[in-house]
């Protein structure tokens, strides 16, 4: 796989001729060999239609295409980096958390409101993630950024995992998510425990959780 972790905040990617790679613009720290970086106006794969789609969805993070023959070091803002290997399944992640990913992965945008109807809409507002999320499908590796270390929690059928929306990083697998509320009278009178909203993830797969409630 193309990513090797140098330390918890840096990854090294091997770029081979004919194998494209996408990364967040400005995330390159150093490179060796003959590598070229082209800003990608479309903000990722696909044609004009996908580009418009991403703009509308607000999931258009400035990306660049990395091509050539050599090795590139990636890192950004001192954030922790988690490398996720995909073997045919789909990773759901916020566009601004994407550091770099294999060109072999299929990039898409998903409307989160379609999961859970009205609650799905509310979810986007509460978590500050918006109504859309980026999906990556296929075989390849993704480098995802998080504040603090990341832990991977498996989700198995019948054993859903609840996650603090602010600590949620990404998830993969056949997972449905919905916003669950535990709003009680205590929250109304300002005596809440600070855990009124949770993301409930059920199905089978894994969720990545960061050790912090801070956004990037």
């Amino acid at each position: 796989m193309p990513f090797t972790e140098i330390n918890s905040k840096m990854v090294e990617a091997r770029v081979l001729p004919g194998r494209k790679m996408y990364s967040q613009r400005g995330a390159m720290l150093a490179y060796r060999g003959d590598v070229s970086f082209t800003p990608n106006i479309q903000g990722g794969q696909g044609g004009l239609a996908s580009m418009i789609g991403r703009r509308v969805a607000g999931e258009a993070t400035p990306l660049m295409t990395v091509e050539g023959d050599g090795t590139v070091l990636f890192g950004h803002g001192g954030h922790h980096i988690q490398v996720v290997e995909l073997a045919g399944d789909t990773l759901h992640v916020e566009a601004d958390r994407l550091l770099a990913f294999d060109g072999t992965l299929q990039q898409g945008t998903m409307f989160m409101g379609s999961q859970g109807g009205v609650m799905g809409m509310v979810r986007g507002q509460v978590t500050g993630q918006g109504l859309f999320t980026t999906t990556l499908t296929g075989h390849g590796a993704v480098a995802v950024m998080a504040h603090g270390g990341v832990i991977e929690l498996p989700i198995t059928p019948g054993r859903p995992v609840h996650v603090d929306p602010q600590a949620y990083v990404a998830h993969h697998g056949e997972v449905t998510n919905k916003l669950s509320t535990a709003l009680g009278w205590r929250d109304m009178v300002g005596r809440g425990s600070g855990e009124a909203f949770q993301l409930e993830l059920s199905g089978s797969g894994a969720v990545y959780v960061q050790a912090s409630e801070e956004k990037l």
Partner: peptide, 11 residues
């Protein structure tokens, strides 16, 4: 940040 199973939170 996360939990599985059943949990109740009370201030």
């Amino acid at each position: 940040v996360a939990y599985d199973g059943r949990m109740a939170f009370k201030k």
